[in-house]
Design a protein around this nucleic acid. Sequence first.
DNA 1: GTGGATTACTTGTAGCTACAAGTAATAGTA
DNA 2: TACTATTACTTGTAGCTACAAGTAATCCAC
Lengths: 171, 171
Amino acid sequence: MTEEKWLNRDELLAWVQFVAVLQLLPPALDAQLDRDADLTHFEYFTLAMLSEAPNRTLRMTLLAGQTNATLARLSRVVSNLESRGFAERMACAEDRRATNVSLTDVGWQKVVATAPEHVNLVRSVVIDALTAEEIAQLGAISAKLLGNLDPEGKMAATMLAAASGDHAAQA
Amino acid sequence: MTEEKWLNRDELLAWVQFVAVLQLLPPALDAQLDRDADLTHFEYFTLAMLSEAPNRTLRMTLLAGQTNATLARLSRVVSNLESRGFAERMACAEDRRATNVSLTDVGWQKVVATAPEHVNLVRSVVIDALTAEEIAQLGAISAKLLGNLDPEGKMAATMLAAASGDHAAQA
DNA sequence: GTGGATTACTTGTAGCTACAAGTAATAGTA
DNA sequence: TACTATTACTTGTAGCTACAAGTAATCCAC
């Protein structure tokens, strides 16, 4: 039943350190964005995904995949973004069950205004702390983990394709 | 002001994939523990840290450091654990401002009962998905990031020292 | 040894997330 | 063409976290 296969010393050390990163990094991202732009990281990421989408518009379900969120979570966040004028919902012509979300001009400006500072943080905390080789390793490791975390590849696949997007959607 | 230094293609790709892991892995840990043991990952980790401490007891501030939490957060979580009989607060003799938390016998049993399944999950999602080399890389990268996220080393230092602890505290 | 910082927590309040249940539209089947 | 199942969201409710403010004890100067 419970296979008694513990972690060895190296595995445990790596895991504990990784867990610390999992606990500390997201709050660090949230803190910077909240302070500088009154956005959570999830909100920022959502806006960024929209900014890259064709016509700056996506169906809720697709956007949920790209942001790794449940539809329930995304629904509330979009309502919030809508109330602040950054996004708007529109009925979907092809499928009347679906709703499209698009970035407003104000939302676009918000992303453009917010991205540089955020990229600076990502650089200073993550990218510039690592060598090019380590960045490649981190990407490869993350991709492997995503294989287990997101078996259907809802997120990974889309992102890999979109990785050559424009500047405003960076980070 | 805002140095316009964007992420290049490789950096962006690695970052986006890493962000996906940051978003998906913690919920996966929480889901398993909630299902199998009615614990959040943070609660489990807290109990595990206590189980390793000398005398299974720690001061709140120290425990907060080891779990990467604010005192405010830890305080509520400990209250919860206390109400479920897993931990108990005790006045600190040396410093009457401080409070010690210790694991009860029930709490110890809980950790012992919960650890195997949890380790299995960590193995199946993370450890077994990577080569030994990649695990070492992940540890090294995490350590570097922690240098920026936790400059005082409140967590990292303690953990490195404790990495040779006993089984029940694994993962 | 008195007064002002600092430390060690605790708690009020607001906001976010998760789970579960609910609604509406479409697809599939007989 | 009905009937069921599935898909695409939305929303009620509970619980967790963060920020800020509050309390109590200790430290540090003078």
